[in-house]
Design a binder for these strands. Structure first.
Lengths: 333, 333
DNA sequence: AATAAAAATGTAAACGCTTGCAAGAGGGTT
DNA sequence: AACCCTCTTGCAAGCGTTTACATTTTTATT
């Protein structure tokens, strides 16, 4: 049971070669005579040798590990992104250190510190925006980083997301085309740039194009939870709104169920369109119409971009907007 | 911008002490004169020194990193566990390397190999069962490991979960009390020990206690997906079953919606109880009655247990069953 | 067969830290 | 003044690899 750690040195001795040679075959590196390679490989197998990645990391200054800062793995949107990240990470032989930040500034900073201490080769940052302080830390370090799913207001950091403004505009326009003029805008947390700037702009553009005046009372701030939505339904009920753009599925589900419970018929009396397209959209009754976002792909592409950055390859375009769609289900006519 | 890596050596020089002393203050270690400590701390601050965790790992043989093998982060059950794990991990200053296994034997093995190469201090394994081969690898290495949420058929590895047999029995008994005798058993993948042994036994015990004969045609095998459930609804419709025990929420949601779409009234004509208690249970209409499992806590407790194991503390009981409950919502009367 | 070029292998110095051991610095005791 | 502790600090040997650079072996050329 006591697997006394076998080192590269043991292998070298047993195989009658130097550790440099063993290192070479382990790394599939340069030119080693086939015969030697076979001999070494045999010993590695016999001794059950497993290269110590930590030592490797020290010597080569590469850890083949990337950090992933995520608000909450429990959030369907982010976990889907994370899955995309991990899949391509492992495809390129990287592991990911996953760290939840709760979207909190101080936690993010702390987590970043940690990740850098662990010498990660790169970082994919997920979040709804990029705080000033964090951006500073990023630029101070020379670890490549890419932002997945979020927005960087100053377009300074490589990013992959969708065009939130356009998507929102499309969704709202769809509602307008269905005859609505009183459309509630409920993107979630209005503090976040993604809502406060991008989505709001899309909403406003759609209204403007249709010649509808922007009415501030149609803008609602909310937490990204089912319960927040459920409660908001009451508030909504008291307004003249006849449709709503909602920034997240759980929130939308809450609103939908809340409204339904109050006897409102969706979509006859009230239409809803949500901004994400998680499994939830199929589960609610009626099913939620939504913007379809390629979450998994966003994560995958972000990670792929990161591998390039880590290899110091040139990135043609550091700001990718993936295509999105609009899926009509049952909460819109 | 070129933060030429400042090392412990730089700090030592600047502070006029030896690196050993710097190391001591960094590790809050042993006894260092307060004056010296202050001096060193000041330099650390000025130079913005950040200890290299990789070097530390090599020297100390501790990486303060634990591996987490998870079937799929995207699964609500597992991501909730993962969150619990990460929270207490970071509480104890550990980071987690998260690796998706897709519940595949070969992938698990590969992932494990990786984790061991990275010299993780411990592993928390999530999965529905523990494959022979993996168990072997585990016992070959001397890295502590704990199983979260799953079952170890031979009770060989520290585990934290709930009593799946008892929970299933309780749930089924509830259905029986409501007058049902034809109860479908749809735990999910019947290959998995957790279903094939534990849950099935609970189901059978409940029937037996009520004097109902076990009917094999009431046992259904299914994938853990919404669609599988939706389709299974048709099949179910054709049987004499009047109630069902379902092993997962998504699956249950599919069954519920499928049945409803066929005009079946739940719970009047058909009752459903699901085995997990994710957010979904509140979102479906009618809301799903379910067994409530402390997912987050299972993860948290498992990680806590792992910290003890890593510290070579004695574990009083390596097989923890956390309490569960039964929540009646609207799919049962 | 001699020689140059190419291929294979070895040597040893990092990489940045921890840690056992030794030694210096102050006291207090007798 | 000699001796013994206890508290601090420094020395230096690792930890297990990678990787320039040097050296040896092989192959090709004439």
């Amino acid at each position: 049971m006591e697997k006394e750690n076998v080192t590269i040195y043991d292998v070298a001795r047993e195989a009658g070669v130097s550790m440099a040679t063993v290192s070479r075959v382990v790394n599939g590196n340069s030119n080693v005579k086939q015969a030697t390679k076979d001999k070494v490989l045999a010993v590695i197998d016999r001794l059950d040798y497993r290269p110590n990645a930590v030592a490797r990391g020290l010597a080569s200054k590469k850890t083949t590990t990337v950090g992933v800062i995520i608000p909450d793995v429990t959030d369907m949107f982010f976990s889907e992104l994370a899955r995309g990240v991990d899949d391509v990470a492992s495809m390129y032989h990287y592991n990911i250190i996953l760290a939840n930040s709760d979207d909190s500034g101080t936690k993010e900073l702390q987590v970043l510190e940690n990740l850098l201490a662990k010498q990660v080769d790169g970082i994919v940052y997920m979040g709804n925006g990029l705080r000033e302080q964090l951006r500073n830390q990023f630029s101070h370090s020379n670890v490549p980083i890419v932002l997945a799913g979020g927005v960087d207001e100053v377009n300074q950091i490589p990013t992959v997301n969708i065009d939130y403004t356009a998507a929102t505009k499309d969704a709202v326009t769809k509602l307008i085309k269905n005859g609505h003029t009183q459309i509630a805008f409920i993107p979630g947390n209005m503090q976040q740039a993604i809502n406060q700037k991008y989505r709001l702009r899309g909403y406003q553009e759609a209204l403007e194009e249709a010649g509808i005046a922007f009415d501030e009372t149609m803008v609602f701030d909310a937490q990204y939870t089912y319960n927040a939505g459920f409660e908001l339904a009451n508030e909504l009920y008291a307004t003249t709104a006849t449709a709503a753009f909602v920034g997240a599925d759980e929130l939308a589900a809450g609103i939908l169920n809340g409204l339904t419970d109050r006897g409102v018929n969706v979509p006859e009396d009230f239409e809803i369109i949500t901004a994400i397209n998680t499994k939830l959209t199929q589960i609610t009754r009626p099913q939620l119409s939504s913007i379809s976002i390629p979450m998994y792909d966003m994560g995958a592409v972000a990670m792929r971009m990161l591998t390039k950055l880590m290899d110091k390859e040139n990135i043609e375009n550091g700001h990718l907007s993936l295509p999105y769609g609009i899926i009509s289900r049952q909460t819109t006519r």
